[in-house]
Simulated assay, not measured.
Amino acid sequence: MKTNCECLEKNEEWHFEEQLECWYAIRECASCTYYWEGPDHSKTNRSSPPLTGIVYKPNDAADKVDSIRNRPGQFLVYCYDEHGRYGSPVGFNEVKDIFQFCELNKFSHKKIKVISDDQINVLVQYGSYVFPKEWTQYN
């Protein structure tokens, strides 16, 4: 899945999504008919807006909503951008919830790490799940 195009004349808009507590992108290009929208979980700092496109500043006076980043969880999921930067983690307790989150976000982030007790439990890079080399014998 392509989450960006290379055209110079594309339109890109960003706004801060309160419930996800991260920046949300809408990208559209008339020349290559490209369209994508979704959250960027690697950009969670409200006061550090993205550097490209039109940025709609968040309203600090807006009513606060429950964010997914405020949930406690045994597993912490970190999403990385193309420069290796990551945002605040999302906490999960259920494996099915972790899998669903990774499936939804695996193509829009360069890397996703699921960590518990300071150990990487799941690693997704470039849209694919990465398994330890010792496990390749079972393929």
Rank of each mutant, 00 (worst) to 15 (best):
P89M: 09
H109Q: 03
I98M: 06
D66T: 09
R69H: 13
N70E: 13
G84V: 09
F75I: 07
Q100D: 12
C102S: 06
K113Q: 07
A61D: 02
S88G: 01
N93W: 13
C102N: 14
I112V: 07
Q74V: 12
F107A: 00
K113D: 05
V114G: 07
V114S: 11
V77T: 07
K106Y: 03
K111C: 04
V90S: 02
G87T: 03
K106T: 06
G84D: 08
K64W: 13
V77L: 06
K111E: 14
V90N: 05
S108F: 00
A61M: 10
A61E: 09
S88Q: 15
P89Q: 14
Q74P: 00
R71C: 07
C102V: 01
H83T: 12
Q100V: 01
I115C: 01
E82G: 10
H109M: 11
G84E: 09
K111V: 06
V65D: 14
D66Q: 15
N70T: 14
D81H: 00
F99W: 04
K110D: 01
N59L: 06
P89K: 11
S108W: 02
A62W: 13
V77N: 04
L104A: 12
F99Y: 10
E94W: 13
R71P: 01
P89S: 12
V77Q: 02
Q100L: 03
K111A: 00
F107E: 02
E103V: 06
K106G: 00
G73S: 10
D66G: 04
D66R: 14
N59Y: 01
I98E: 02
E94C: 04
H83P: 03
F101N: 01
D66P: 05
E103N: 06
D97E: 15
L104Y: 08
F99K: 14
K113W: 08
V114Q: 06
N59Q: 13
L104S: 05
H83E: 15
V77A: 06
F75V: 00
P72E: 13
Y78Q: 06
G73T: 11
Q100G: 05
C79S: 13
D97R: 09
